[in-house]
Computed example of a mutant assay.
Amino acid sequence: MTNDMQQNGPFGGIRIVDVTSVISGPCSTGILGDQGADVIKVEPPTGDIMRARGKVAGFTPAFVSCNRGKRSVALDLKDGSAREILWRLIEEADVFAQNFRPGVAERLGFSAEEALRRNPGLIYLSISGVGPSGPYAKKRVYDPVVQALSGLADMQSDPLTGRPKMIRSVVVDKITAVYAAQAVSAALYNRSVTGKGQHVEISMLDAMLNFNWVDGMAPVAVVGQEEDASNTPHDMIFPTADGFVTVGAISDKEWVGLCRAMGRADLIDDPRFATPSQREINRQERLELIEEVVSTQQTAPLLASLEAHDVPCAPVLRRRQLFDDPQVLHNDVVQVINQQGLGPVRQARSAARFSNHKPKPITQAPALGEHTKNILNELGVNPDTIANPSGKKSIA
């Protein structure tokens, strides 16, 4: 392994050609880029739609998070000469990632079959909303659509009114990105064994259903023994006299510690809470008792007492408080980069650390078409010679 590969990360030497847009695709290739891959972001001359969703033209915090460290090439894929440039890139790539609606890549001429014919070692990643076929395949899909279809909104339902609720985060996009990055990693490993590339398909709907199954689908998992998936009105956040905390106690030891930390040792032998099963059956009553006690206490001494009794707990931090939290500071998760167009921008580093690789420095996201000429030069192509039939350049 070269020193450059050690510096870049475990995917040093891997090149990804990325024509994805919005969140799920760019985030997935961004994960691999954080781990050392060279990601070439191919955008239309108008740019990824996420560039236009902020106050500053060309850059938004979300765009920066998903596309930092990439190289941008602007190509109008409606033009034949631009499509030929993309083919040149694909033929030299390890991974090609697209999240067009089903059928679009084929209409443009970039089917998985043709890409693998030209580059048999290629990992061709297709990300879709609900899958490549089926009654919903042609739907335009964003995160809330899959939150609705996957049962996630139902899992968040208001227990008093039954009204489903969305999670106020693009959780489906981000989970899909993680699943896609893992799948590409698995395919690259398989290629190292077999020498063969393959087509990897992942849909946001499939990713979220798999993600939900561990807990949210438990009430309906046993065939013939389905239960009403009712939620407790309590959300595990407890107000204190000067803030909010979360407290959890699953094992008997943790429950005993919680009772003693709260000064309610009498609850230890209460038959309603004597076993994990009984505590779950009487969950709402248990949580209301905890809230009654902790709501009268100051946050700092309460947390100190809970910690002393080895009870899982934490203050509920506001987002601005994260930057001063001692564990976040110790982990050096949040770093500041100078992003063109925005100035200093906070970014969270890659979650994984590798003992054989130095952390890859976080670098800024590219301007639209910032690296077009350099990459074309790498291919031996003069950008000034490329124009569509109308005479308008098909690259930017």
Rank of each mutant, 00 (worst) to 15 (best):
V42L: 05
A37R: 04
L32Q: 04
C27R: 12
F63V: 09
P61F: 06
P61I: 04
V42T: 10
V42Q: 08
F59L: 02
E43V: 06
I23M: 13
A52L: 12
G30I: 10
G47L: 01
D18V: 01
P44I: 09
D38I: 00
K41Y: 03
S24L: 12
G36M: 08
R53V: 14
V39N: 08
A57P: 11
M50A: 12
F59S: 09
P26Y: 04
L32E: 02
L32M: 14
A37H: 05
R53H: 10
V42G: 08
P61M: 06
T60I: 09
P44Y: 02
V19E: 00
L32H: 05
D38T: 13
P45T: 14
V17N: 06
A62K: 01
S24R: 03
I23C: 05
G36A: 11
F59E: 15
S21E: 14
F59M: 15
R53Q: 15
P26V: 07
G54Y: 02
I49D: 14
S24H: 04
V19F: 01
V64E: 06
D18W: 02
F63W: 10
E43Q: 10
V64F: 02
A57T: 12
E43I: 07
M50K: 00
F63M: 09
P26E: 07
D48M: 02
I23E: 06
V17L: 05
M50T: 14
V17P: 06
S21F: 09
K41T: 07
V39W: 01
V64Y: 03
I16R: 08
V17D: 10
S21K: 09
S28G: 10
F63Y: 15
D38Y: 00
G25C: 07
S24F: 08
D18F: 05
T46W: 02
V64T: 13
L32R: 01
A37L: 10
G33W: 01
A52E: 13
I16L: 08
I40D: 08
D18G: 08
V42M: 08
V56W: 00
G54T: 09
F63E: 11
F59Q: 15
G58N: 10
I40V: 15
R15Y: 04
V17T: 14
K41F: 00
D38V: 04
K55T: 14
T20S: 15
G25N: 08
T29E: 09
T46Y: 03
M50R: 00
V22N: 09
R15H: 02
I49N: 03
K55R: 14
C27N: 13
S24M: 13
A37D: 08
R51G: 06
C27H: 13
V64P: 02
R51Y: 06
R15P: 04
A62C: 10
P45L: 15
A62L: 13
I40K: 03
M50D: 12
P61T: 02
S21P: 00
A57D: 14
R53P: 00
I49Y: 11
A57R: 10
P45R: 12
V42I: 15
V17G: 06
M50C: 10
